[in-house]
């Protein structure tokens, strides 16, 4: 058993009949993920290379036993698809779609929490449990099975770090791309909690970037609640400060959201932060081997 997805995952893909949805949904199936259904309203009864299509996610739950939904629907309609998934009876919703308006995500986020459905994303690369299941667009060939859990706001940066771990001879229990949008279903704290309780994970790598205060809050949480070692990397030290519109943002979070502030918050709580993806991977490998 790994976190979020594993051998028992039965995946339904909203948007499986679309170009991107079919490409990645079928790649996930080729990897070994149990792809049990696709959903496109009005196309029920058809199939995509042998995977049956249903009109609604609920039908796919009732008839094909789907327990995990992946959303590959265009941004304008994506929040409606996520809401449908939340109501359908699946346990987990992984939303890949980017560009969903914040005002659509606010009620959707609270709905998922209320119903106890785990939402990952949106605007994320998905989740990969090497050797078990892949849901999303993470290229599995750059990761090996192993004992390091990775949680990241950024897609390509995760591939970079995963690949460095692989080259150093280490692998991953699960890689979770949580997405970089202002409103995401699960943040660092949610995933750190899962990794901490996961018997297959010995160490956690956390990859953050500028904006918001999720890293600062994670730092507090790590110190208080997480028993496993955490290694971090933060991108964006040289990013230009955005043109500021008012100062209400800084008041709320109590943080400037800069990479430096995040690094300092993490280091103050004893989390080692790599200067580059390469260094973060090196520290992770060293720490893992000294356990």
């Amino acid at each position: 058993m790994s976190i979020i997805i594993d051998n028992d995952t039965k995946l339904v893909v909203s948007g499986l009949t679309g170009r991107e949805g079919s490409f990645h949904g079928l790649r996930n199936r080729d990897y070994g993920t149990q792809l049990v259904a696709g959903v496109t309203p009005g196309k029920g009864g058809q199939d995509v290379e042998g995977t049956p299509i249903y009109n609604t996610i609920r039908e796919s739950v009732e008839e094909a036993g789907a327990n995990t939904s992946m959303i590959f629907v265009p941004a304008k309609f994506a929040a409606a698809a996520i809401n449908e998934a939340i109501d359908s009876g699946v346990e987990t919703v992984i939303a890949i779609t980017e560009g969903i308006p914040v005002m659509d995500m606010l009620p959707t986020y609270w709905k998922a929490r209320e119903k106890g459905v785990r939402l990952i994303g949106p605007n994320c690369p998905g989740v990969l449990s090497p050797g078990k299941a892949n849901v999303g667009i993470i290229p599995a060939q750059f990761f090996d099975q192993g004992r390091i859990g990775v949680v990241s706001k950024s897609g390509t940066l995760t591939y970079q770090i995963g690949n460095e771990l692989k080259q150093a001879g280490e692998g991953n229990s699960t890689i979770v791309g949580i997405g970089g949008d202002p409103i995401i279903g699960s943040d660092f704290i949610d995933i750190l909690t899962l990794f901490d309780a996961d018997p297959e994970t010995d160490l956690i790598v956390m990859v953050g970037e500028i904006g918001g205060d999720a890293e600062e809050r994670a730092a507090e949480f790590i110190a208080a609640e997480i028993s496993k070692p955490v290694v971090a990397y933060i991108a964006g030290f040289t990013a230009p400060p955005g043109k500021q519109m008012g100062h209400a943002g800084a008041i709320i979070s109590g943080s400037s959201g800069t990479a430096k502030a995040k690094q300092e918050a993490l280091e103050a709580k004893g989390v080692r932060v790599g200067e580059s993806p390469t260094e973060a991977a090196r520290i992770a490998v060293e720490t893992l081997r000294s356990l």
Partner: peptide, 10 residues
Amino acid sequence: GAGLCMSTLD
């Protein structure tokens, strides 16, 4: 990717 690009600047 924004993350890798920011990391490259760094």
